[in-house]
């Protein structure tokens, strides 16, 4: 039986991280899924919602629900966007209820729906994983991303000393409380650097843009890379930076 999947790329990944979305497509197709990318999608409305713009968020939620109507499973490479849809949409608008319970974050979809932890990936690098707050506490993905990473051939996984500590992104928090956000970022970067990993991975490009942006500013040489790109990498077609 083929599983039909609608990809919710998320506005940030679509705009700034197309490699991540392409990796999700490649990975899911390799695992036998048929992937669709509904054209009506834009943004889930999370930034508006979390900043207090509830009415604007409701508009975007209804639009998102409409874009994904009729799809059996919606997969997002983002714990916070999937969390927004699943946890908060029902309280925002009755018109969104259908999409909420069919939406999955990528690692959940792989482990819970497809039932795989070994996705046939190959990634010969030292990697550390940051569990993003919303994947952890809103969705409850638990150790699913770690189980997926442990099955990747060639990958050396080193754990952070305080993995569950927030990186300080927090959406508009990063600019509204930039000093506090930066202090949290500094501690997270120190933790990442102490592992000696060359790659930092997570299930959210938003947090990765924040931590990776800091690591890049300090020219640490540590790369922030979405989990999907590691899982999509194989011996035949290994991960390579887009020029």
């Amino acid at each position: 039986m083929t599983t039909r999947v609608a990809l919710m790329a998320t506005c940030l990944t679509d705009t700034f991280y197309p490699d991540t979305a392409r990796a999700v497509v490649r990975l899911l197709e390799r695992l036998g899924c048929v992937v669709d990318f509904p054209k009506g999608q834009t943004c889930c409305g999370q930034m508006h919602y979390n900043t207090g713009y509830r009415r604007e968020a409701a508009t975007l939620a209804r639009r998102t629900a409409k874009a994904f109507a009729g799809h059996d499973a919606v997969v997002a490479p983002s714990g916070s966007c999937a969390g927004m849809v699943r946890d908060l949409y029902p309280g925002l608008s009755r018109l969104t209820v259908g999409v909420a319970d069919r939406t999955y974050e990528l690692s959940e979809f792989l482990v819970d729906v497809l039932g795989v932890t070994d996705v046939g990936a190959y990634f010969p690098h030292r990697v550390t994983y940051h569990p993003t707050c919303h994947s952890l506490r809103v969705l409850g993905v638990g150790d699913k991303p770690l189980r997926l990473l442990r099955a990747v051939r060639g990958l050396e996984l080193v754990e952070l000393s305080a993995p569950e500590s927030c990186c300080g992104f927090g959406g508009t928090f990063a600019v509204k409380n930039a000093d506090t956000s930066t202090a949290m970022l500094a501690d997270k970067m120190r933790d990442v650097l102490d592992t000696g990993a060359r790659v930092l991975t997570a299930g959210d490009n938003s947090c990765l843009m924040h931590i990776g942006g800091g690591l890049s500013r300090l020219s640490t040489g540590v790369r922030a890379l979405h989990l999907a790109e590691i899982l999509a990498s194989t011996e035949e077609e290994p991960w390579a930076a887009t020029p």
């Binding site: 790329a9 991280y17 490699d19 979305a21 392409r22 930066t182 843009m209 942006g213 800091g214 500013r217």
Partner: peptide
């Protein structure tokens, strides 16, 4: 944002 973090350059082609 850029006081403490870099921003990735927008890609040549969005997803």
């Amino acid at each position: 944002w850029t006081d403490s973090r870099d921003v990735p350059a927008p890609p040549k082609e969005t997803f």
